[in-house]
Amino acid sequence: MTRKRYFTIVAFLSLLLLSVIISQQPAGLQWTKETLFGQAKLQATPDSFYQHRVDEIFVRYCVDCHNENKAKGKLRLDSFRQAVFGGRSGDVLGKNSTTSLLLARMQLPADNRLAMPPLGRKRQTKDELKVIQMWLDKGASGSLTRAAFATAPEKQKIIELNPYQPEQIAKKRAPFAKQVAKLQKKYPLNVQYLARTSHLIEITHISSAPAMTDQSFTELDRVLPVVARLNLRNAPVTDQSLPYILNMRSLTYINISGTALSAPSIQQLIHLPMLKRILVSERLLQELDLQKFQQAGIILESVYYENS
């Protein structure tokens, strides 16, 4: 055999092997269809039943082990597109709920070796299984909206309580613990942790205790990132404190009613990433751009003062 012929065969075989490998990968096939043949991108529509009901179930029970970084069984369930691609066992969605490997594994008793999620992990409720079953029976669609699933069980609000892990809390508190302790010594009633399970703190101005002033903020410098609640009601603070407040990246609540903070300064608070609620003096309301607060998802409430 000549060299040329040999390498022609090798090139042909390599291409063939590559094609076989790609054809075994639904993601590769889909990419080819979309890139070379202009097919529409495979994804769920934002108002789809999948996006509203199914995805959240996958996120709660499956995505820890079936995501981009860790795709157990080569299966990813972090998006509709990836769920359609399936995993090592091939297609997991099936033509309907009776042929779906995904549902079959989710319905197995918790102690079964093949049960998903595996033994020891939190398991889906009957209603959640019903939601997945209905979705599979309608062809595992990424476009059908909730209207097509009128009989689906109501969405339940699930409140999960994380176990108390003191060593983890201590670890989170450690970088600020010394400074917080120092502040607690100086302002024993004003500086508190939000809870024993939290590393975040709450600072409250209390008229009968040492006052929170502009000067006080200079002492907070190192704990600013962990201040989650700030109650400065009637505190003698001015715009000088604003730079410090704007550095409170964990701040979710602030009460600045009765303070000397100006409307332009208060307006800047919309830049705080976690802020959800602000209490201000009623007289300032007309000077504030309320729409911007609304757009930022911040609830602005006013407090009426007779002398204001």
Binding site: M1, T2, R3, Y6, V10, S14, L17
Partner: peptide, 14 residues
């Protein structure tokens, strides 16, 4: 392994 096979069969056949 594929590279190894290509090389081996180059010796074997060519």
């Amino acid at each position: 392994v594929w590279l190894h096979l290509v090389a081996v069969f180059f010796y074997q056949l060519v």
